[in-house]
Write a protein that binds this DNA or RNA. Structure first.
Length: 456
RNA sequence: GUGGUUGUAGCUCAGUUGGUUAGAGCGCUGGUUUGUGGAUCCAGAGGUCGUCGGUUCGAACCCGAUCUUCCACCCCA
């Protein structure tokens, strides 16, 4: 019987106590914010029927889905001809479930299945892991968490504004100051493709233009040519690429540039209203930047699109989202529009780490540990322990009778700020010795006094 | 999915053209003090060198496969 070394599947991680403390610091901030804006929490199963998931993320997406082998004799329904037909044809016979790939599709499924119980507009948030059979890299995992907030059943641009406000609140609480919320509108991109003489190609345009930051204008032109755009059309795009200035300046420019496109003009008007509403809230435009070349690959966006980039760090975007007109159409429920966005917790974690923005005492859990010299002290300590907990102090007693040195060492390693020591003297005088591990000071007090001191 | 990269003690890393018993720092355990942790000093434990196979008298080192890490592309949070 050989002992096997345990290991983790590629692209997955354990979260130890200190990581969990830090993750919860981020997640609690996000949850508080979602609730503050009236969103309610939803959870859906880790696995969905494969029919719910396939075909929603494109061919590549289907490849990245984790499929779950049927229970029992999973080859039961397979015969020789199925084997010859290849993987794609055989898949439905051996797997009927899969792990969720994102939170949007399960949400759409939920809305459709509960369409009659839901009161619209429906504001929900959802924080759960998702799985992708991608090749992992730094900041890219096969299991990771998404924090989605969506509101469906309203076209109001107030939702867009509130997304901006939620992002700003979360980042302010996390002490992140140097970041940009980039905003654009899919209708503007549609308008652009019309105006430059390539109508209907906004999808292709998006894919290429989205890389501007990364590969530069020259390379983007090459890519556009490859994607079948004519050189004169590309030339017409030039003034948009080089457009600089304030959000108002850019909108002014677009108004003229897209005048001939009905759709584009609509997009401009929507953006204008978002900025106008923001002002109505009494808020400024800090961190909000209209980015004419922000595209985002996802094809289902139809209105506003968002992306958040933290400056001066090596991590890509940490949040993104947008408006979609027909979330639930694939499940047979037409006309449910909505807008949503998502925080990438894992990436925010990396950003906070890179910028050393995690609070120092995040790891502390226990406030007081009780130590003692012998069995008598231990028994006395149990009463003290109970009193501490009733006073609302997170506390523990060292469970084994070992040397005092070892007890203190434990408290020190666990970053426990106070130790209450029990010996014969304390028992005789009905007191406790309280030691502050940070300063090293210690003296004897009544238990009630000690509790007040710890709470101070 | 394509191309490349990494793996030696719990952690960060040395390790000569292939040659006897694979090292350091930090950490860990015990002691120096019989009512006290974090500093000093002393001692100690811990490695089938990612795994499997091959070449060789001999492999941490050379070759192959596989797993893992990270990177670029694709795509994405």
């Amino acid at each position: 019987m050989s002992i096997q070394k345990p290991s983790l599947p590629k692209g997955t991680r354990d979260f130890g106590p200190s990581q969990m403390a830090r993750r919860n610091y981020i997640l609690d901030t996000i949850k508080d914010t979602f609730r503050l804006f009236g969103y309610q929490q939803l959870e859906t199963p880790s696995m969905e029927n494969l029919s719910v998931l396939t075909g929603k993320y494109g061919d590549e997406g289907d490849q990245l889905l984790y499929k779950i082998l049927n229970s029992g004799d999973y080859l039961k329904k397979v015969n020789a001809t199925d084997l010859d037909a290849g993987t794609a044809a055989m898949l439905p016979k051996i797997a009927e479930k899969g792990l969720r790939y994102d939170l949007t599709v399960p949400f759409a499924r939920y809305v459709v299945m509960n369409r009659n119980e839901i009161t619209y507009p429906f504001k929900r948030f959802q924080i759960q892991p998702v799985w992708r059979a991608d090749r992992p890299q730094k900041g890219r995992y096969r299991e990771f968490y998404q924090c989605d907030a969506d509101v469906v059943g309203t076209d109001s641009l107030i939702c867009e504004v509130e997304i901006l406000l939620m992002i700003r609140r979360v980042f302010a609480h996390l002490k992140l100051t140097d970041y940009d919320i980039k905003i654009n509108n899919r209708k503007i991109l549609t308008g652009l493709s019309e105006v430059i003489g390539e109508p209907g190609k906004e999808g292709q345009l998006c894919v290429a233009i989205d890389k501007l930051d990364k590969i530069g204008w020259e390379k983007v032109q090459e890519e556009l040519l490859q994607r079948g755009f004519a050189q004169p059309s590309i030339d017409k795009l030039e003034p948009v690429i080089s457009q600089k200035g304030s959000n108002a300046d850019k909108l002014e420019f677009l108004k003229g540039f897209l005048a001939s496109s009905e759709e584009g003009t609509k997009g401009v008007r929507e953006l204008e209203e978002v900025f106008a509403l923001l002002a109505e809230y009494g808020e400024d435009e800090a961190h909000v930047e209209l980015d004419l070349v922000l595209a985002r690959g996802l094809s289902y966006y139809t209105g506003a699109i968002f992306e958040v980039k933290v400056n001066k760090v090596s991590i890509g975007s940490v949040s993104g989202g947008g408006r979609y007109d027909n979330l639930t159409g694939v499940f047979g429920l037409e006309g449910v529009s909505g807008v949503g966005f998502s925080f990438g917790v894992d990436r925010i974690y990396d950003v906070l780490e890179e910028l050393s923005l995690f609070p120092a005492d995040q790891e502390r859990s226990t406030e007081v540990m009780i130590g003692y010299f012998d069995e008598k002290g231990k028994k006395y300590g149990l009463k003290v322990l109970n009193a501490l907990r009733q006073a609302g102090l997170s506390s523990e007693i060292y469970p084994d009778e070992v040397k005092v040195k070892k007890q203190f060492h434990y408290a020190d390693k666990k970053n426990i700020p106070f130790v209450i020591m029990i010996g014969d003297e304390e028992i005789d005088q009905n007191k406790v010795t309280l030691k502050n591990l940070h300063t090293g000071d210690q003296s004897m007090y009544d238990l009630a006094e000690a509790i007040t001191l710890i709470k101070a």
